[in-house]
Amino acid sequence: MSSESLNLTLRIWRQDGPNAKGGFRDYKLNGVSTHMSFLEMLDVLNEQLIEAGEESVAFDHDCREGICGACSLMIDGKAHGPDQATTTCQLHMRRFHDGDTITIEPWRASAFPVLRDLVVDRSAFDRIIQAGGYVSVNTGNAPDGNAIPVPGTVQETAMDAAACIGCGACVAACKNASAMLFVSAKVSQLAVLPQGKAERGERVLSMVAQMDEEGFGHCTNTSECEAACPAEISVDNIARLNREYVRASLVSGK
């Protein structure tokens, strides 16, 4: 495929720090190759900004392969941009047209405060996992890997849920900024596996409590999260979380 080149207007959220007032700034960027990834396009912009004496646009990224979950941009109002099941770092410029204006914003959620420009603080997710997103097994305590057979279907269900990359697109896409898809993915993975069963009740109660404490909104079943999720985590997990929650509440009497 030969490459074409695009002339674009980028409308980018700039904000100097957590407490600074932010706003959009427009930048013209010409000669963008359609082979570039979206983040490479921002690299090129940043090089030009630095050469012109303006500080570069800050954005989170690392693997650039769609797996680390670092990249996190609202592109024209869509978390990770227009492509299904695709992170920002895997989005390519051939998806855009010459003359386009592209609006780029950070994730917007009160539980994800902006640190600078397009970078937000997602440590709330870590704290939710700390509340119970694990199996309590110390190193050295494990029986042989084959001691407990796990049926293929169970393993597949667990793996589907475990594929979550923790990027926060689900929160950004939800009008209530709910973290239910993220939380339910971990709850599901560990609830279906035999290794996670012993703690399943306590786990779901603590994780949900922490989610509420962090200020994430409630789930109203609009499934926007599923549509935005680059790892294709299904809202079936939310249904499972709800069942787990009811079950655990009954058992614990809370």
Binding site: V137, T139, G140, P143, I148, G152, Q155
Partner: peptide
């Protein structure tokens, strides 16, 4: 070998055969 056992216990969803073994 201990690594595999440890990871399985943590809930790492390794690929399995139909019968449920790794």
């Amino acid at each position: 070998n201990n690594i595999i056992d440890q990871c399985v216990s943590q809930g790492v969803p390794f690929a399995r055969e139909y019968g449920g073994t790794l």
